[in-house]
Each structure stands twice: as C-alpha cells, then as structure tokens.
C-alpha cells in the first residue's frame, strides 16, 4: 500500500505556517509485506507562498496526508473535506516528524523539539 505525504518546510523543520511555506517535502511511502515502510523523498520549491496553490497541489497530486504546524481553519476544513488527513500543530525537525509518522505515532499537536531547558 502506497501513501503520499506532504510537509511544508522551513529549512530542515516543519514550516511554522502552512500559508507561508515556499518549500514542501513530498514523501512517497511504500509499505513492504512485513509492514515496514520505505520512504522516497523529494523537495518541491514553490514560486511563491500561496495556501490556495498548496491545496491545489495536494489535491492534484493525490496526497493522502499533510503534516504541518499552523494552518487556517478554512484550508484545514477544505483538505478534510477532500479526504486528506491533516496532522496540524506538529512542531519539530522534519526527519523526526517523518519517522514518528512512519511508526504511526504522529498525531496533531505533537511537539518533537529537544528542549534543552
């Protein structure tokens, strides 16, 4: 079973804002027979930050899930309506966030920064 996931990026972290992201990570996840995942990643650079354009890409490219930090209610509702799973208020480095997702441990509101304080 294959899955496509989109994560708005800010450097190597989940972008703080869905509507302001100019780079996204598109992850193609293949599950092997034993259930272990194999992820293929690619970074897509957008010409400008646009939540509408991002939503269009998500729908047109058949994304199954979006992992992001802050997203406005109308885009969240729209994606849910289009049957895209949205994990929002997720904060952290993208590698760590992705591994949580692949392990099935990610949920909305997950914060994955190592806080040194």
């Amino acid at each position: 079973m294959a899955e496509k996931v989109l994560i708005p990026l800010y450097e190597n972290e989940v972008a703080p804002r869905f509507d302001l992201a100019t780079e996204v990570l598109v992850v193609h996840v293949d599950r092997r027979n034993d259930g272990s995942p194999r992820a293929t990643e690619k970074v897509v650079v957008l010409s400008e930050a646009s939540p509408e354009e991002l939503c269009r890409i998500i729908i047109a490219d058949g994304m199954d899930a979006v992992i992001c930090s802050a997203i406005e209610e109308e885009y969240h509702q729209y994606l849910i309506w289009k049957k895209v799973a949205v994990f929002d208020n997720v904060l952290g480095p993208v590698d760590k966030v992705l591994s949580y997702f692949l392990e099935g441990r990610l949920e909305s509101g997950t914060i994955l920064y190592d806080c040194p304080l």
Partner: peptide
C-alpha cells in the same frame, strides 16, 4: 497563541508564535 508555558519552554520562538514576520 494557544501554547502554554510548559509546551513552548525551549522551543525556537518562531515555532511558538507562528507569526508572518518570523519568516520575513
């Protein structure tokens, strides 16, 4: 913001506030 004291303690400020100006 919706984030409480314990949740944001130690977070990079731009990810806690999620403000337009942070990235601009």
């Amino acid at each position: 913001t919706g984030f409480g004291r314990e949740e944001v303690m130690g977070l990079p400020c731009m990810h806690a506030l999620r403000c337009r100006f942070c990235t601009q």
